[in-house]
Design a protein around this nucleic acid. Structure first.
Length: 330
DNA sequence: CGAATTTGACCGGCGC
DNA sequence: GCGCCGGTCAAATTCG
């Protein structure tokens, strides 16, 4: 199948192109929020905060959008065999709401890219459908973000019928999380593509301790990737990306997860905003703490926070530089 | 064997 | 009301 165009083989997407950009409509009143006045969604304030916190880590055109309260209300799909034949009113309502939301995507971004630019997207996408499109000889492929279970981000990829060399990518909905925290989070984006990307596959996301050995591997993998991607000109490894990918800084997902769990276990306390303020806004802010040698630890979030700094070693930019120099000498 | 992809079925919106 | 269309689901298949 798909002998004529292996879209899935190149569909890791695009992030920096001279494509067409459109912001199509943004519903001000969240009529699709099934619980518009439910207290649980007051966490959006915290999520907004998290978005702010993470801005420094993302390219301007791709910073995560963590503000949608709907990410906390991901619907659970029930296998058909367990569904009663007749639909209850609630089911009908849910279905209608879901579809309305589907049709009224909050954001839609359209880009036109060349085939070789499809692989520059760092988000992880999983294909869930493909349809022939009327008026186009090429099918349209449907992808959803596979980095996070609750993420509603979608992406459609189709070849332009007027110019087959151009792919039209349509992003819809928003990512409810930061970039995939580590390479092995790119489930669905590695198959048939870069064999080395599966090296870390066995590691679960819960295994977030960064040891020196792991870091050695991360550097090695990163360099292999650069070679495979033809990025041989830049000898320098992107340190911030490396630190992000290796969870030397926390993903917003893990932060949100930790905060949610904390709320669940301490319903009367709620979110500890003061803690966040102290962690990220004190001194000269978040960037300083993570990237410039301030040994930062997460005590309040403990179980859910990445154990970003080994007990014996402080991984910061200086250590990183030293380590990379050593690696180069070998 | 687990995970990703494929593909036909299904569903709701929309135009006639 | 009906049929077309686009988008999604989920079982089957494929792959590493």
């Amino acid at each position: 199948m798909e002998a004529d165009w292996g879209l899935e083989a190149v569909v890791r997407g695009c992030s920096t192109t001279s494509g067409v950009f459109m912001d199509i409509q943004e519903d001000e009143d969240d009529i699709f929020n099934p619980f518009p006045h439910d207290d649980i969604f007051e966490t959006s304030t915290a999520l907004d905060k998290l978005e702010e916190l993470y801005k420094p880590f993302f390219p301007e055109n791709l910073h995560p959008l963590v503000s949608s309260p709907t990410i906390l209300s991901s619907s659970v799909s029930v296998p058909k065999q367990f569904v009663a034949p007749e639909k209850k009113p609630k089911d009908l309502k849910d279905s209608a709401l879901r579809y309305k939301k589907r049709k009224n995507q909050q954001k839609r971004e359209v880009k036109e890219v060349k085939e070789d630019e499809l692989s520059s997207d760092k988000w992880a996408w999983r294909k869930y459908g493909q349809k022939p499109i009327k008026g186009s000889p090429y099918p349209r492929s449907y992808y959803r973000c596979s980095s996070s279970k609750g993420c509603s981000a979608r992406k459609q990829v189709e070849r332009s019928c007027s110019n087959p060399e151009i792919f039209i990518i349509t992003y819809t909905a928003e990512h409810s999380h930061a970039y995939p925290a580590r390479r092995n989070c790119l489930a669905g984006s590695t198959r048939n593509k870069f064999p080395i990307a599966s090296k870390n596959k066995a590691k679960s996301s819960s295994d977030s301790t960064s040891t020196k050995d792991e870091f050695v591997e991360a550097v090695s993998v990163k360099k292999e990737e650069q070679v495979l991607l033809g990025d041989v000109e830049s000898n320098e490894i992107d340190k911030s990306e490396l630190m992000l990918s290796h969870e030397l800084v926390p993903s917003s997902e893990s932060l949100v997860r930790g905060l949610e769990d904390e709320q669940n276990s301490e319903p009367n306390l709620g979110m500890d905003y003061d803690f966040l303020d102290q962690q990220y806004y004190s001194s000269d802010g978040f960037l300083d703490a993570w990237f410039f040698g301030q040994p930062t630890t997460f005590t309040a979030l403990d179980d859910h926070s990445p154990k970003c700094l080994g007990q014996d070693e402080k991984w910061d930019y200086q250590t990183l530089d030293r380590f990379l120099n050593e690696a180069d000498l070998q």
